[in-house]
Write a protein that binds this DNA or RNA. Structure first.
Lengths: 338, 338
DNA sequence: AGACCCGTTGTTAACGTTCACAGTCTTGCC
DNA sequence: GGCAAGACTGTGAACGTTAACAACGGGTCT
């Protein structure tokens, strides 16, 4: 009956014809415009249903200039921290009716971040979240592309973008104070890579707590977040005489440290106490279960979307807001009195 | 000089005027059409550079009907497996010049998957990758939305979509055979949740290997992938007399099992041998380092994009292709002769 | 020399939606 | 009964790009 063969999906005009109204009325129904007669609305909805019409968001974006898509730039989303943060971001964004377009970077260089931002800006995203834990990434935000609202996660003092982060310094302080309060003379530290702001923050907290207690800070051992680097640091520590407490900058490295201690028959927490950072799901089942500092990645993700949307919807000045999520302490079995 | 105040970004027409050509010529330069005189191209490029022009991909998508965006539907991207797979997908897609739009699901139900697929289809993605490890997710693929090419990762025998997966059965077989070949009388199994196809596959492989060796299969213990569930299974196993070998369906649960054994002073591999599955980065540093089956998630991600692009670009029939990635065996210190 | 082809450029019309504005039809009120 | 206000609906023009086709010029072939 009629023009037959419709090999292409129906458009608004088709619905309009079917319902005997104009395309504009269909648009109004779709956008929940108040001034549409109930009977008309029903007819349009029926036509939509009958034809299986779905609105074309691309055409819509062209005219409204809003894609309802958010961009996310992140590093190695294989790691638990970034993965959890991105997960939180995605859920919060979708709850707010936004799509999420992701770019994962392998290289840490400044131009990589620039490229990713340009790439997303080209795509027409309404806003961007940059999970920028490295100093170089944070710096790349200084010279942002065009006028697209941006929020940095773990972004230090970056340019004039808003920042959402966990209070790393406080976390380092809590970990160190815990060990000192147990009676340890001093606390050693296995740190993360120097390019990472999180690593710096934890070092700073550790230093501050030691200074406050009037203790000398030993030379920190360098790690790269991987269990292997923790293992190597652990071997070094095991061969030293006066080590009784270690604060390790993340749980994965702490696992490596524990492994090295086990091999050298250093008992934890009998001879040495160990504190980690992150509280990955595995930590509770290490041998021994790891005392650690928990980061609420989900909250970080949610907050970053809140801040970003407030900026997009113009309810907030583009000025740099700074939202700090507190870490929490998780006491398990890897720490004890010396 | 001229119309002043350009508060809106330049468009193709602006570039055309600046370069003294038609907008179509600008389009040709941008799309690397061969028939443009070198001198003209140079002039256009200069104008683009001068005005800071960036092409509007939304407008382009409207007319070409291609968004150069791929959709990814996944479950809990906090877990190492899904996170790594999605990471591989994202990298491969971007290398091929595609954006990636992600939807993470929490609920496992069929309608959740349907909604996600509709959601992505609305957005106008060119293709979809569904990381569908659960049976219910795989089933949701049976009644796909419209004509958008789709690939399932770990998707079982799902409908008529293509599937890329790791050979779980083979993995289970290898793990079990390894333990049998060491001389263990039989092999116990801590399995994943029954809704997961991967869990089923590993069980099947374990059963097959035992059957081949003419051994009775003990009742498998149920887990939910979490370290805690492994811990509980481990406590059960520790209280049994005749257990000398356990194949645990993933490394996280294996960690829980190891923890339970440590608490009950069951020595690994002295009294009991343990094999895991996945080879997460931590496994090498468990106590003892875990013998396990490695899944190459990166390869899975890359292959899924390959298959999908082949389908999108019409170089392949929409029929169900099936690409199986072999697992590999990683021998460490948690297994030994009884 | 004329026909023809090909490389190069321009002109016009889509793509499917929303926005701005102009109608038309009620309704209520004097 | 007339008139204005407001509810409802329709018309035309954007949005910024690519596709299709036409037009022009210069060269080659017969």
């Amino acid at each position: 009956m009629g023009s037959s063969r419709d090999h292409r999906p129906p458009v608004m005009a088709d619905v309009a014809k079917e319902a005997g109204v104009s395309h504009q009325t269909v648009s109004r129904v779709l956008n929940e415009h108040p001034n549409v007669r109930g009977e008309t609305r029903a007819r349009v909805l029926k036509a939509i249903d009958k034809l299986g019409y779905r609105r074309n968001l691309v055409a819509r974006a062209l005219v409204t200039k809003h894609s309802r898509t958010l961009g996310v730039v992140s590093f190695d989303t294989t790691l638990y921290g970034p993965a959890s943060t991105v997960y939180g971001i995605e859920r919060a964004a979708r709850a707010a009716g936004y799509f999420v377009s992701i770019v994962s970077l392998k290289s840490i260089d400044r131009s990589g971040v620039r490229d990713a931002l340009d790439y997303l800006a080209d795509q027409g995203v309404d806003g961007i979240v940059v999970v920028a834990p490295q100093r170089s990434a944070a710096e790349a935000l200084a010279d942002l592309p065009v006028g697209v609202p941006t929020v940095a996660v773990e972004g230090g003092e970056a340019g004039d973008v808003s920042v959402v982060c966990v209070d790393q310094v406080e976390g380092g302080r809590i970990a160190t104070q815990h060990l000192l309060s147990l009676g340890h003379e001093t606390v050693w530290h296995v740190r993360g890579p120097s390019d990472w702001l999180e690593a710096e923050g934890r070092v700073a907290g550790w230093r501050a707590a030691l200074a406050l207690a009037g203790r000398e800070a030993p030379e920190p051992l360098a790690g790269d977040w991987s269990p292997r680097s923790g293992y190597e640091a652990g071997r070094s520590l095991a061969s030293m005489r006066d080590v009784t407490a270690v604060f390790v900058a993340n749980d994965q490295m702490a696992l490596g440290v524990l492994r090295a201690f086990t091999e050298r028959e250093v008992r934890v927490p009998g001879q040495v106490s160990v504190v980690g950072f992150d509280d990955i799901p595995e930590s509770e089942f290490f041998s021994p279960p790891l005392t650690t500092i928990r980061q609420d990645f989900g909250a970080v993700g949610r907050h970053s979307i809140e801040v970003l949307l407030r900026q997009i919807e113009g309810r907030s000045p583009p000025a740099h807001e700074r939202l700090v999520v507190p870490p929490s302490f998780v006491f398990r079995a890897s720490t004890a009195r010396p």
